[in-house]
């Protein structure tokens, strides 16, 4: 049984299409990164899973329960770190956890949970005085109450410093080892690639890619991209560069006055520059760029083709 099963989910807000026949599955026991730029529909999807909003069409099932019909069952087994929340200003951190513990009908120790997220010393302070990062840690602690089968974390790194984000990832890993499925959204690949088994990339309400992190990495054809700005270009020089063993692709860009070669290289870059100079072409400038998963993400989410809406 998949932990989350989304099927043909469509959501209109007035005249705006937020989700367009979105379908995907989160397997039991995995850490699934739900990626997309802001406004892609990540929070809308999560809001449907938690029954905060009702879909226009399609269905969603969480832990085998229909998200609309059995929302209470779902939320009893799920820990949630919502997005765009606000803490209860006049309740202390401890009161927040006591409320979550009472609501879930479990007997966790508030202090232990607060220690786990690193805000134990602020336990008896009112949450209204917490920083954004502390509030985020408090919400994470509330999500962990009752050892949930599923964690739904909406942009969990928001407001956290790099150290906080690392601790967040450690908790995600530990919860996953305990047996929990983790579904978390982010607008940045960096947050996701270190912990996720699989990644889904959402763009304008549609899933444009679902793959394992390794799979996405494999889709990176070229190890390094070399950009060479030259004074001119001719076919012989181009052929010579293409003929090099280390070169996997060559594209021509830039302007006529200053053409640029974009060369995918998996080996010696000086060979490329040497081949150009051998053909009497002046290299004016060059730069190299390591390809990363961020590039994959970028290519999926900022592609120049116009989407029919």
């Amino acid at each position: 049984m998949p932990a989350i099963e989304v099927d043909g989910l469509t959501k209109w807000f007035g005249g705006t299409l937020a989700l367009s026949e979105l379908s995907f599955e989160v397997r039991d026991g995995e850490v699934f990164g739900f990626l997309g730029p802001n406004g892609a529909g990540k929070s809308t999807t999560i809001n449907v899973l938690l029954d905060f909003v009702r879909p226009t069409a399609g269905s969603a099932a969480v832990l085998g329960f229909d998200a609309q019909e059995h929302s209470r069952e779902i939320r009893a087994r799920t820990g949630v770190l919502p997005e765009g929340y606000r803490v209860y200003e006049r309740l202390t951190g401890r009161k927040h956890l006591e409320f979550a513990i009472e609501s879930k009908g479990v007997d966790d120790d508030p202090q232990a949970l607060l220690e786990r997220v690193g805000i134990a010393d602020a336990a008896d302070r009112k949450a209204g005085g917490y920083s954004k990062g502390m509030a985020q840690r408090l919400m994470l602690a509330m999500a962990l109450v009752g050892d949930p089968d599923l964690l739904i974390l909406d942009e969990p790194s928001t407001g956290l410093d790099p150290n906080g984000a690392r601790e967040m990832r450690e908790i995600v890993r530990a919860e996953n080892e305990r047996g929990a499925t983790v579904f978390f959204s982010s607008h940045s690949m960096e947050q996701v690639e270190a912990v996720c088994d699989r990644v889904g990339i959402l763009r304008a309400g549609e899933m444009v890619a679902v793959d394992s992190v390794e799979g996405l990495r494999d889709s990176l054809e070229d190890g390094t991209t070399l950009r060479v700005t030259v004074d001119r270009i001719d076919d012989d020089a181009l052929a010579a560069v293409r003929a090099l063993e280390a070169v996997s692709s060559v594209k021509i860009g830039g302007s006529d006055a200053e053409p640029t070669l974009v060369v995918g290289v998996d080996g010696s870059k000086t060979a490329v520059l040497g081949a150009l100079e051998d053909h009497g072409i002046e290299v004016r400038d060059f730069s190299t760029q390591e390809a990363s998963l961020e590039d994959v993400f970028q290519s999926y989410t900022t592609g120049s083709e116009v989407e029919a809406r």
Binding site: L50, D51, F52, R75, P82, R86, F99, M139, M142, A143
Partner: peptide
């Protein structure tokens, strides 16, 4: 308006 309702409804309350 503030979003604290999300905190409330993230817990198993109808």
């Amino acid at each position: 308006e503030t979003g604290s309702l999300k905190v409330l409804l993230s817990l198993p309350h109808s």
